[in-house]
Lab assay of single mutants.
Amino acid sequence: HSHMSHTQVIELERKFSHQKYLSAPERAHLAKNLKLTETQVKIWFQNRRYKTKRKQLSSEL
Protein backbone atom coordinates (compact mmCIF):
# COMPACT_ATOMS: atom_id res chain seq x y z
CA HIS A 1 0.00 0.00 0.00
CA SER A 2 1.62 3.22 -1.10
CA HIS A 3 1.12 6.51 0.66
CA MET A 4 -0.08 9.51 -1.29
CA SER A 5 1.31 12.94 -0.64
CA HIS A 6 -0.86 15.81 0.53
CA THR A 7 -0.40 17.47 -2.86
CA GLN A 8 -1.55 14.39 -4.74
CA VAL A 9 -4.66 14.09 -2.58
CA ILE A 10 -5.49 17.77 -3.11
CA GLU A 11 -5.25 17.30 -6.88
CA LEU A 12 -7.39 14.15 -6.73
CA GLU A 13 -9.98 15.95 -4.60
CA ARG A 14 -10.05 18.86 -7.01
CA LYS A 15 -10.59 16.56 -9.97
CA PHE A 16 -13.25 14.64 -8.04
CA SER A 17 -15.18 17.82 -7.27
CA HIS A 18 -15.53 18.37 -11.03
CA GLN A 19 -16.22 14.81 -12.05
CA LYS A 20 -16.98 11.67 -10.08
CA TYR A 21 -16.08 9.28 -12.89
CA LEU A 22 -12.97 9.29 -15.06
CA SER A 23 -12.58 7.69 -18.46
CA ALA A 24 -9.52 5.50 -18.98
CA PRO A 25 -7.59 8.24 -20.88
CA GLU A 26 -8.44 10.83 -18.21
CA ARG A 27 -7.31 8.44 -15.50
CA ALA A 28 -4.06 7.72 -17.35
CA HIS A 29 -3.43 11.43 -17.80
CA LEU A 30 -4.13 12.25 -14.15
CA ALA A 31 -1.98 9.36 -12.94
CA LYS A 32 0.90 10.52 -15.11
CA ASN A 33 0.59 14.11 -13.88
CA LEU A 34 0.55 13.03 -10.24
CA LYS A 35 3.20 10.31 -10.67
CA LEU A 36 0.74 7.68 -9.49
CA THR A 37 -0.32 4.44 -11.11
CA GLU A 38 -3.66 4.28 -12.91
CA THR A 39 -4.71 1.64 -10.39
CA GLN A 40 -4.04 4.02 -7.50
CA VAL A 41 -6.14 6.69 -9.15
CA LYS A 42 -8.93 4.23 -9.96
CA ILE A 43 -9.06 2.88 -6.41
CA TRP A 44 -8.91 6.36 -4.89
CA PHE A 45 -11.91 7.42 -6.98
CA GLN A 46 -13.82 4.26 -6.08
CA ASN A 47 -13.18 4.81 -2.39
CA ARG A 48 -14.01 8.48 -2.65
CA ARG A 49 -17.34 7.75 -4.37
CA TYR A 50 -18.13 5.17 -1.72
CA LYS A 51 -17.37 7.62 1.09
CA THR A 52 -19.55 10.29 -0.52
CA LYS A 53 -22.40 7.83 -0.95
CA ARG A 54 -22.16 6.72 2.68
CA LYS A 55 -22.20 10.30 3.90
CA GLN A 56 -25.33 11.04 1.88
CA LEU A 57 -27.03 7.95 3.27
CA SER A 58 -26.25 8.85 6.88
CA SER A 59 -27.37 12.45 6.43
CA GLU A 60 -30.74 11.25 5.17
CA LEU A 61 -31.42 9.28 8.34
Rank of each mutant, 00 (worst) to 15 (best):
H1N: 08
H1E: 09
H1Q: 10
S2Q: 12
S2P: 11
H3Q: 10
H3N: 11
M4D: 01
M4A: 03
M4L: 09
S5E: 04
S5L: 05
S5Y: 05
S5Q: 04
T7I: 09
T7W: 15
T7S: 11
Q8A: 05
Q8H: 03
V9A: 06
E11C: 14
E11Y: 06
L12Q: 01
E13L: 09
R14C: 14
R14E: 05
R14P: 02
R14I: 05
K15W: 13
S17Y: 07
S17K: 12
H18K: 13
Q19T: 11
Q19F: 06
K20A: 07
L22I: 05
S23A: 05
S23L: 03
A24I: 09
A24R: 12
P25Q: 14
P25L: 14
E26N: 03
E26T: 03
E26R: 02
E26F: 02
R27P: 00
R27Q: 07
A28W: 05
A28D: 04
A28H: 10
H29P: 01
H29R: 15
H29I: 14
H29D: 10
L30M: 05
L30F: 04
A31I: 02
A31C: 04
A31V: 01
K32T: 06
N33G: 06
N33I: 15
N33S: 13
K35T: 05
K35A: 09
K35Y: 08
L36H: 02
L36G: 00
T37N: 04
T37Q: 03
E38R: 03
E38C: 06
E38A: 10
T39C: 14
V41Y: 01
V41E: 02
V41A: 01
V41N: 00
V41D: 00
I43L: 10
W44H: 00
W44G: 00
N47C: 15
N47D: 06
R48H: 06
Y50R: 15
K51A: 13
K51E: 14
K53D: 10
K53G: 09
R54V: 09
K55Q: 14
Q56F: 09
Q56V: 07
Q56E: 12
L57R: 07
L57N: 13
L57H: 08
S58A: 10
S59E: 14
S59W: 06
E60I: 07
E60H: 08
E60R: 03
